[in-house]
Structure formats: C-alpha cells, structure tokens
Simulated assay, not measured.
Amino acid sequence: MVINKETLQLVKKRIPDSLDKLIMHDWWIYLCTSSFGKVVFDPEPYIWYRQHQNNVLGGSTDGWVSKWRKRLSRFAKGKNRYILSKQAQQFIQLYGQDMSPQMYKDMDQFLDSYQKGVFSRMKYIWQSPFYRQSRLDNWIYKLVFVLRKL
C-alpha cells in the first residue's frame, strides 16, 4: 500500500483509542481513503510481498481448501466475529461529522439494520450499498450479516 501525505493526515486526524475495534490497519486506511479520497489500484507489482513466518492472516501459501478451513475454524471459535460492525461503529464515531449526508445515511442504515430482527436484516442486506470483492466473499458477508455475526 502506498499512500500520499493527505491520506496520512486523514488517518492520523482521528486515531481510534482502542485497536481492538479494527480489523487490520490496512483495512482501516482503505476505509478512510475510499470514504474521503480516491483509491487507485495499480496492477503492476513494484516490490515483493513481505511475509512473516507466523502471519495470522494474509500472505499465506495455503491452497483454497486450507484457507477456507482456517476461515471457518476462526469463525467457529468466535475469532473476528462482530469485527466489521465494531469497525463501522468506530468509523462513524470518529469520522461521522466529515461524511457526506448520503455516506452517513448508508453507514447509519447498516448499523441500524444490523441491530434489528432477522427479517429486517435479510431485507436490508439484499439492497445494501456495501459488498465484498469476490462473489463468494459477498455471499458469505450477506450470510454473516443475517446471522448477526458480522
């Protein structure tokens, strides 16, 4: 990830008191940038991906089946449950006053719908403006939202 000075200042402007409500630092930076700036994906790699021996997530050389087995295991053990909803709450607390009215409305509806009953969550998630990048991840995101484990 490469960021410019404006992005750095935006992220530093309001640093969360507790990092336990954030998924990962790069997700938080992406959320800030995509909300208030522009994200540019460059398909050309310029450096090797730096990977640590004991990475918890990311950079894994596991196959598809192994990656999903680990994901399901983390979910079954309760790890990373509720982290997306906590991160959304943290983001709206810190940056809500800077959001456009539509962005604030979208985030508020997300958080409000998440607290409602299963049928309200089902109705909301099918018309939600939020999504994951891959089709499979998007279906899982919707399912986890409906189960209220997001």
Rank of each mutant, 00 (worst) to 15 (best):
G58W: 11
K123A: 12
P45K: 06
Q87V: 01
Q109Y: 12
L8P: 03
M122W: 15
K21E: 00
H52R: 06
L143T: 10
I29E: 08
R132K: 14
R135K: 15
T33M: 00
K149E: 13
S120A: 05
G59M: 03
R50N: 03
D26E: 15
A76F: 14
F91T: 13
S73K: 11
K105R: 15
P129M: 04
L22C: 05
Y82P: 02
S85C: 12
K86H: 09
I140N: 14
W27I: 04
M122K: 14
D106H: 05
S113A: 10
F75V: 01
S128I: 07
N4V: 12
V56M: 14
D108R: 08
L8M: 14
V65D: 02
Q127W: 07
N80V: 07
F119I: 11
N80S: 11
S128G: 10
L31D: 00
K12E: 11
Y104M: 05
D20H: 03
K123P: 04
I23P: 04
D26P: 00
I83C: 03
I23A: 08
M24T: 14
Q97F: 06
M99D: 04
G96Y: 04
V39W: 00
T61V: 06
F91K: 03
G78Q: 06
R148A: 02
V2G: 09
W126D: 04
Y46D: 03
D42M: 03
I23Q: 07
G59L: 03
P129V: 15
R132P: 05
D98K: 01
L8A: 15
G117M: 02
L19Q: 03
Y95M: 12
V2W: 10
K149H: 11
Q87E: 09
K105M: 08
I29C: 04
Q53H: 15
F41I: 12
G96D: 03
V144G: 10
K79S: 08
R71K: 07
Y124K: 00
H52P: 02
Q93V: 12
G96H: 10
R121H: 06
P129Y: 10
V65L: 13
S113F: 05
Q89Y: 05
R50C: 04
K38P: 02
L10F: 01
P45I: 02
Q51G: 07
D26H: 12
K142C: 01
S100E: 07
L94A: 07
Y30F: 15
I140H: 11
K67V: 14
Q102D: 11
I29P: 04
Q89H: 10
Q97M: 08
W27A: 11
V144I: 15
F110G: 00
F75L: 09
